[in-house]
Amino acid sequence: MTRARVDAEGTVPPVTVDVEVRQLRLSYGRTVALDDLSLSLPGGRVYGLLGRNGAGKTSLLSVLAGFRRASAGEVLVSGEPVFENSRITRQVCLIRESGDVGDGDDRVKETLDIARHLRPSWDAEYARRLVDRFGVPLDRKVKDLSRGQRSALGIVVGLASRTPLLMFDEAHLGLDAPSREAFQEELIAEVGASPRTVVVSTHLIEEQAPLFEEVLILDRGRLVVQEETDTLLARGTTVTGHAAAVETFTAGMTTLGERRLGRTVEVTVFGDLDDADRVRAGQAGLDLTPMALQDLFIHLTDPDVHRTDPDGGPR
């Protein structure tokens, strides 16, 4: 679905676009990066894409941006296939970790000029402001930029492209803390001013978590979790107490992990706890604490954790 609006000046701000992925498979030779992956991203939201190294985040984003052709399955943006579809690809911008938005021998200002030529929605004035804010030297060659400056250039290009679907793949790597904060502020301001679909892939989970309205967790090429951030956080609970009491309380629940310290046990459970559960825990002398998103992510993707899964696993 595509929603177009006309603002007070009569210009058409970026529309939001929906993303639909059906039974996506991507393999590199014998290596399967994505396997039978299906997901749906309604437009106008900010999604956090989480996953361990090699989980398939970059592969997924590459297919969404038309950088690669899927081995099987469908990738639809606004209901249309992405790959080699110029109507769609010009509405999509993927900024990658390497910040390779320009040729290394080009100067920064030439890179911005290339973007101006190629991106119909390019906002040169906004790009200039962002360059100033992130301190990217316009006259320096891209290959001579520091890692952080190259990341900043990628962020400038991504934001100033003003595409309806904007994706950042670890694009903030190398940025110092103030610049990462500036990135968050700019992204929030942009999305607030003109809603668009944004996907941020990151390993800096706690730092970036405030951006996310919804979280996607990939693990070994498969979607493990897609959930609203608040709902997901509410579903992760650490139950701490006497071993026997904890065992009784968590019986039948999806447990993600367990740690023992003498007779005290700490069990991570994934699922909704209602008021009755909380009363029961209190009566048993158990301590219930909400999990941080990063801890939840670690547990949900830990290959060494024995996971009891009575309902078929977290989704």
Binding site: G66, F67, E84, N85, S86, T89, R90, Q91, V92, C93, L94, D100, V101, G102, D103, I114, A115, L118, R119, S161, T163
Partner: peptide, 16 residues
């Protein structure tokens, strides 16, 4: 090797 990836990264197709 250089211009084509750049154009794709900026939303242009291989055919274009």
């Amino acid at each position: 090797t250089r211009m084509l990836p750049l154009c794709i990264a900026h939303g242009r197709t291989r055919r274009e």
